[in-house]
Design a protein around this nucleic acid. Sequence first.
DNA 1: ATGAAAGCGCTAACAG
DNA 2: CTGTTAGCGCTTTCAT
Lengths: 344, 344
Amino acid sequence: MSTLVEVGRLAGVTPATVSNVLRGRGRVSEATRERVLAAVQQLGYRPNLNARALVEGRPHTIALIVSSIANPFYPEFALAAEKAVRKHDYFLLVCNTNNDPAQEAAYLDAVGGSLAQGVLVMNADFVRVDELLALRRRGVPVVLCMWEKPDEAPDLPYIAVDFHQAGVIAAEHLLKLGHTRIGAIVGSEPTGNHIWRYRGFCDALARAGVPHPPDEVRFGGDTIDAGRNAAHALLAAVPDLSAIFVSNDLPAIGVLQAAADLGLEVPADLSVIGITDIQLAHQVRPALTTVAVPTEEAAELAVQLMMQVIEDGAQQIARCAVASTPQLVVRASTGRVRRARKSA
Amino acid sequence: MSTLVEVGRLAGVTPATVSNVLRGRGRVSEATRERVLAAVQQLGYRPNLNARALVEGRPHTIALIVSSIANPFYPEFALAAEKAVRKHDYFLLVCNTNNDPAQEAAYLDAVGGSLAQGVLVMNADFVRVDELLALRRRGVPVVLCMWEKPDEAPDLPYIAVDFHQAGVIAAEHLLKLGHTRIGAIVGSEPTGNHIWRYRGFCDALARAGVPHPPDEVRFGGDTIDAGRNAAHALLAAVPDLSAIFVSNDLPAIGVLQAAADLGLEVPADLSVIGITDIQLAHQVRPALTTVAVPTEEAAELAVQLMMQVIEDGAQQIARCAVASTPQLVVRASTGRVRRARKSA
DNA sequence: ATGAAAGCGCTAACAG
DNA sequence: CTGTTAGCGCTTTCAT
C-alpha cells in the first residue's frame, strides 16, 4: 500500500503537491499534474482515509444504529440511508445492536472515538435517549430517524413522520368501504411506539361515530407471528369483525395468515390494512393494502439534518424535519363490506 | 472530545502512561492506574480510532460487500457476519453496492484506502473477481463468502457451501414422498449462481431413474415475483407435476403463491421445496419445506478465514473452508404424492 | 514505574 | 507553481 511520499518520489515532487493534485487545490502545472496522476495510477495509490480523517478531525463516515435486522423494514431503511449519505460522499456504517445494550454501548463508544462523524438512530422501542444525549454532549452529532411520539419530542434533532395521520388514513379507508365493525391489532405495547398510529385510528372512528369497544383491540409484537396470534385471539373473541386495522405491515401479514387459517376470504370476509408499505406488502397474497410511509424521504431528511448539524458545529439545537404525509396504497386486502358473517 | 494528552494532564502523567493503562501494557502502579481511570471517566475520554488505526497501520474494521439488500437473505447474512466480527472485536462496515458497479468501485477504493482492513464479499451473480484480485494485490485481504461453483474456484480464499448436495437432499426428499413428476424452477440464469443446486437435483433424479425432460425446468430471477411467474409458466406447460423443486426460498415462496392463484392445495395437489431457510420460509403459509444452508456457520468461517489471512500478512494463499452440509427442514409445503391430477 | 521522542500518512499554512 | 513545516492523536521503543 503506497503512500503520498512514494507517489511524490516517483513523480519527482513533494507529497504536498501530490495532495494538491488529488484534491484539486492550489495551482499545479498541467505537466506535473499528469506526472503525478501517472504515478498514482502506476502505484495503485489510494489515499489513507484514516490519516485524512485524523488530520481533518473527522472521518467521512456516518453511523446508523438499528436495533434489529430481523424486521425487514430496517434493512430497507438502511438502504435508503446509505443512498442518502453516499450522495454527500460519506460512507454508512450500519450498526446493528441486535437489541443488546452492550452492543449498543460498544458502538456508541466507538462512534464517540470517531469511528463515525455522526450517528443516525433508527427509532425503535428501545432508544436510550440518555446515552444519546451523553454522546451529543461529547460533541457527536446525533439525529433520530422517524420519531413516532409527537408528545414526547426528545431534546435531539429528529425526523418526524405523522403516524397519527397514517392511522387516520387507514381508518378512513375502511370506513369509506362501509366497515363499521373494525378491530385493531397494535404491534407494540399500549405505551409503545405504535400508540399514535392507533390513536389516529381511534380518532377517525370516533369522528365517524363508529364505536370501538376496548375488547376489539389487541396489543403485541411487531412480527408476523405476533400479528397472527393476535388475530386469532381477536377473531375468537369478536368473530363478527369485517375489518382489522393493523399498526404495521408485518403483523398485518400475520393477520392475513390467520384469516387463511380460519378459512376467511380476504377481503370478502375480512378486510386487512397495515402501515408502512414494506416490500413484502406487495409480495404477499392477497397483496396488502397499506398506508405508505415515506421511507426514502425520511432517510434523506435525516441525512440532510445530519449535514446541517455537522456544519453548525457545536450548536446542535434540537430541530426537527417533518416528512410528507403517509399515502394510502390500495391493494387486494381491503374491499367493501359485503355481508355480516355468522358468529362462530 | 478529549485526547490522551488531556487525560494525562488531568492525571498528572504522560500520554504514554495513559495509553499503557488503557491497553493493559507495560507496568503501571495501582495508584496511577486508578488516577488515570478516574481522569478518563471524568473527561468521558474515548480513544480516537482513526489515530489508532493510523499508527497501527490498519483499522479494526471489516467490510462486507453485498450486492443488494432487497433479497432478505443478505441482511440475514450481514447480521451473522456482524456477530462474527464483533467476536474478534472488529466492526463491520456493510457496503451495499446495490448492483451498481460505480458503488462497488467506490467502496473497494475506500477499502483500499484502509477504510477497512479486509473485505468479505458476499457471493452474488456479479462478483468482479478481477477487481478483487487487484485489491488483493494492493495488500487488502479478501474473502469470498458462500462460493457456489466448485468447478470455478477463484484464486481467492473462500467459503464453500455444498449447494450440489443441497439440491440432492431436496430431490431425495421429494422422491421419498413418492413424487415422480417433479418440475424445477431455478432462480438464476442457466449459467448462473444456482446451477449447481439444479445439478444436484438432476443427479438425484437420474440416480433414481426418474426422468426430467428439459421442458420441466424454468430459469429466472431470485425473487418472489420471478418464482411466481415461472411457476405459472411451468404449470401451464406441464400441468401434471406433483412437486416443484425451487433453487432458493424466495422464488419458492412465489411458487406457493402461484399454487394459491391456481387453486392448487399445497401440499395435497403440489409439493414445493426451497433452499436456504430464510426467516420468511417459516413465516409464510403453508410454511416452506427447505434445505437449510448453515448461514451463521458460513459467516463465522468467513471471518475466521479473514483473521487468518490478516495474521499471515502478505501470504494470502488461496484457501478455502467448507461449511457443514445443508440440512433438510421439513415443514408444511411438501407431502406424499396423493393422486394424479387431471391435465388442465 | 514512568517519561521522552519518534513517527504513522496526510493536510494546510506559509514561504519561496 | 512547488517546497517546507508543523501537527492531527495515538502507540511504541528506549531511557531514566
